[in-house]
Design a protein around this nucleic acid. Structure first.
Lengths: 206, 206
DNA sequence: TGTACATCAGTGAACGCGCGTTCACTGATGTAC
DNA sequence: TGTACATCAGTGAACGCGCGTTCACTGATGTAC
């Protein structure tokens, strides 16, 4: 009895490991191809399996895509956490530039994020997963603003800050007639303007 | 000779008028259907013509979509212009809420905007058209910040303000578990936080 | 006024494509006895 | 150790669909003489 349980365990672990390999392949494809052009066939090719095999591991395309995104969201969360927890007076300019830089370097996650934000047809259970990732970032920004001694409630500030940084990423990503380098500089510049406007003391009660 | 010119003129005006009817039909479809689901066939059906006829008036799908978007962008530009020109001390809170409200009520334009911002495969000539519309908004925000006596250069502020408002629209549009009304209130609330952070005086030289 | 011809908006049918997903099958591995 | 059976990962082929775009044709309108 113990034996069969262990065997089943090994088996299910193998399954999870193969799932993970598919997700990694998906991330590599997303890094190279615009989100809306990525197909199940692309990912299968990258993973070195038949496209029909994907369906042994994921019930449908949407589930796979959401899992791939959550990987990236987790990394962002980890990075911000380290940055904010490690100091008693975190540098908001640094934080905004890390966030923006990460999502410029890993454009695939930003594409996925905007896709999911725009897509109205997500299953409720998927939405909840994405939302948990978002809440984690809000929580960290809350910590940031608390450490910066902003007046309560800081949650609204966190929402506004997060939204504003996302806005920078979407608004200037295809800034025409600029090199990638120049776009990058401009985004960081604008993110800096935003960080500064969030760090300034505001007249109380206004 | 004069005669034929006039006839040709009438003819080309008729053509433009029919083009405009197709664009209007497209806008109606966009208002009802997610951007990425709208097809040439949908628009033709709405306009009451055969889908093959579209190609008498537009070389391809992209051209039609861009024209449809520019209609909406023009309206936003007009609205902001009125608002900012009409006062010597414009209300930035009012302006942010008008902008956000317009793009919530006319969600199709926001969808198109984000689509074009994310799409890397636009023809250069289309990009230029879209960019002109964007510049017009930047110019108006420049006026706003100048009237608010912000230190030069105000262009960066305009960029940051525009980006931040767009960020609010994309970040909270599918805020889960909220009614449309609650989402609306939340967006306006966050847009208010942003407007406020842009209207506060910031320490000079910081 | 009548006739032959040119133009061109409008169209239904078809083309070619890529997609997500399912199906029926293979073959390797493990299990029961 | 050997044999019959069960499981299930993996697969190539196929299904069914919707799309953007093109084609060959019609028919209304205008032009030339």
């Amino acid at each position: 009895m113990k034996q069969t349980k262990t065997f089943a365990h090994v088996k299910s672990e193998a399954k999870l490991a193969r799932q993970a390999l598919i997700i990694e392949a998906a991330e590599r494809v997303f890094a190279v191809k615009p989100f809306n052009k990525v197909s199940i066939r692309d990912i299968a090719r990258e993973a070195g399996i038949s496209h029909a095999s994907i369906y042994r591991y994921f019930p449908d395309q949407q589930s796979l895509f959401v899992e791939a995104f959550l990987q990236g969201a987790g990394e962002i969360g980890d990075t911000l956490e380290k940055l904010i927890e490690s100091s008693d007076t975190p540098d908001i300019l640094k934080i905004s530039s890390v966030y923006v830089t990460y999502l410029m370097d890993n454009d695939q996650y930003f594409r996925m994020m905007t896709h999911f934000m725009l897509d109205g047809s997500l299953a409720a259970e998927k939405i909840e997963k994405l939302n948990a990732a978002e809440r984690r970032i809000f929580d960290q920004f809350d910590r940031l603003f608390k450490k910066l001694k902003k007046p309560e409630p800081v949650r609204l500030l966190s929402h506004a800050f997060f939204a504003a940084l996302n806005g920078v990423l979407i608004t200037f990503r295809n800034y025409p007639g600029r090199t990638t380098k120049a776009v990058r500089r401009h985004m960081l510049n604008i993110a800096g303007v935003i960080a500064e406007s969030f760090s300034a003391d505001r007249p109380a009660g206004k």
